[in-house]
Design a protein around this nucleic acid. Structure first.
Length: 144
DNA sequence: GCCAACGTTGGC
DNA sequence: GCCAACGTTGGC
């Protein structure tokens, strides 16, 4: 089981709409690294759902329900993956929190800030979940 | 194969 | 609205 992070501008496609519709074809990815990440996803993998531009926070978790297939919105060699909502975060985890955290500030999403589909380590994923359980920040284990 | 020009993403 | 980072394109 692997973990990922997928980005969406809420004005284009929001978490709320994703939940309302019950599933999403993740199309429109036009970057080779992002495409390769999509292609590496397996059924059941979990992806953090991040709102870029507006919000700048992780708001929920999506689950891969269909692995990569040809993007119907393109004649070229692009891929899509189907997701279903898995769980909303009780409290969104903001970019500011991520950047201020010793573990999370090393995330690929920070290193490669423009990439819309990035891998996430299990330790990072677990920490996001912990932070999302309560409002505000949770003490960094390394600093205690 | 190099690199300048340009477009896009996304944070600020 | 600006700009940094980075990917892509195309001339040479």
């Amino acid at each position: 089981m692997r973990y990922w992070l997928i980005k969406s501008e809420p004005f284009k496609y929001s978490w709320d709409r994703f939940v309302k519709e019950g599933s999403a074809v993740w199309d429109g990815v036009r970057n080779y690294s992002a495409r390769n990440n999509l292609r590496a996803m397996k059924r059941g993998d979990l992806a953090l759902f991040y709102h870029s531009n507006e919000g700048k926070e992780i708001v929920g978790i999506a689950k891969v329900v269909r692995t990569a297939y040809a993007d119907p919105s393109s004649e070229e060699d692009w891929s899509v993956v189907d997701f279903q909502p898995h769980k909303a975060l009780a409290h969104p985890v903001t970019l500011a929190t991520i950047k201020a955290d010793a573990i999370l500030s090393k995330m690929e999403m920070i290193r490669q800030s423009r990439l819309s589909v990035v891998p996430v380590d299990k330790s990072e994923f677990d920490r996001i979940l912990r932070l999302s359980a309560s409002p505000g920040r949770v003490a960094d284990p390394r600093s205690s």
